[in-house]
């Protein structure tokens, strides 16, 4: 529908009372795109890293995520196992095929039945890593890729995210900088802030609308 395209762009330009942007303006706009300047960043997250991690935990818990802090990766299997036990969940977990998660010795908790790959909708619990986490609103950033199937973030009733404290940044913009440094924009970038919720029936907030009913964060202290 290129005719639709050209006609629409022509109407836009007519309304702006000009032709296509001139070369000078184009260069300025290109520079704005490639420089992607930051705007106002709330001072809330402007603190030392330890305090940012605390803020992340505080904000995540405020939106009904649960957070379990463990001292090292070795503590993760037990933390997962305890979480399952606490909520009377079975031993099956669907795990993201993530190098770091795979480097953990899951046999420490022999009862866990770990399978890996995307979800087809039958899994009760998923375990994933995250790309980063944003302190200002307690937001996890996950993105799609071979080691991080998107379906794990939405289909299982319980989403367990294993996060390293060094992955916590202050503001969204900090996460964008890291993501840009990591390469091209992935197909899906998911900002996740607490479990799924709805207020669509009589403005009553309820958790677990379509996505996970619970979001559990295992925060590994790694300095």
């Amino acid at each position: 529908m290129s005719s639709g395209r050209d006609a629409i762009l022509a109407r836009v330009r007519k309304s702006l009372a000009r032709g296509p942007v001139d070369d000078g303006t184009r260069a300025e706009l290109q520079a704005r795109l490639s420089g992607h300047p930051r705007g106002i960043i709330p001072a809330r997250s402007n603190r030392d890293h330890g305090a940012q991690v605390d803020l992340f935990v505080e904000m995540a818990e405020a939106v009904a995520a649960t957070v379990d802090r463990v001292a090292s990766p070795d503590g993760v299997p037990d933390a997962v196992g305890d979480y399952l036990a606490q909520h009377n969940l079975g031993a099956d977990i669907r795990m993201a095929p993530d190098d770091w998660l795979e480097s953990i010795d899951w046999t420490q908790r022999p009862t866990l039945a770990v399978t890996k790959g995307p979800s087809a909708g039958k899994d009760e619990v998923s375990v994933t890593a995250a790309f980063s986490a944003v302190a200002e609103t307690g937001t996890l950033l996950l993105h799609s890729g071979p080691s991080s199937p998107t379906t794990l973030n939405f289909l299982p009733d319980n989403h367990v995210v294993v996060l390293r404290s060094s992955q916590v940044v202050g503001a969204y913009e900090d996460a964008w900088d890291q993501l840009r440094a990591a390469g091209a924009m992935p197909r899906a970038v998911n900002f996740i802030t607490g479990p799924s919720r709805t207020g669509d029936i009589e403005q009553t907030i309820m958790l677990g609308a379509h996505g996970p009913r619970r979001l559990h964060i295992i925060l590994v202290d790694d300095g």
């Binding site: 071979p146 199937p149 992935p186 197909r187 899906a188 970038v189 998911n190 900002f191 802030t193």
Partner: peptide, 24 residues
């Protein structure tokens, strides 16, 4: 909108599933 600090899910979608992606 709702007085939330942030909504539960904010998703940025860029193109279709990549060759190496397991879903999408």
């Amino acid at each position: 909108a709702t007085g939330q600090e942030f909504s539960s899910y904010t998703t940025f979608s860029t193109g279709p599933r990549r060759p190496e992606d397991p879903d999408g």
